[in-house]
């Protein structure tokens, strides 16, 4: 089976973005965090499970709606930019959250 690099890149971007958003929303909304905890007993386990399912679904569905244009450098740049932005967003959010909660 030929690996679809565009779908793989977009699935990675979608998963990293979703993990970041779910994490921040869960910290700001107690009911949402409770929902995640009820899903699997622990909010982090729920995020892990959601990320695996989302990654698989995105990778399987995306090739049906987008062609693999072989723009690997462009796709990788998007992945790296998303990862850096998401990482710093989480860092800044948790610093802010810790300072305002204390």
């Amino acid at each position: 089976m030929r690996i679809n690099t565009a779908a793989l890149s977009r699935a990675t971007i979608g998963t990293i973005s979703a993990v970041t958003l779910i994490t921040i929303i869960a910290e700001l909304s107690k009911p949402f965090k409770t929902l995640l905890t009820n899903f699997s007993g622990n909010h982090w386990v729920a995020k892990s499970s959601i990320s695996i399912i989302l990654f698989a679904v995105l990778y399987l569905l995306l090739p049906k709606v987008m062609a693999d244009k072989n723009e690997v450098q462009k796709e990788t740049t998007r992945v790296i930019a998303t990862t850096i932005i998401a990482g710093f967003a989480l860092l800044l959010f948790f610093v802010w959250h810790f300072v305002t909660e204390a």
Binding site: I3, L8, L90
Partner: peptide, 27 residues
């Protein structure tokens, strides 16, 4: 409050980045 929270969530990026990298090497 900061280090563990960031660590446990940023870690979740790594398996998917490694899947992508491995996928590119094999493709």
């Amino acid at each position: 409050g900061v280090a563990m929270e960031v660590k446990e969530h940023v870690f979740l990026f790594l398996p998917f980045l490694s899947f992508l990298t491995t996928g590119l090497v094999y493709r």
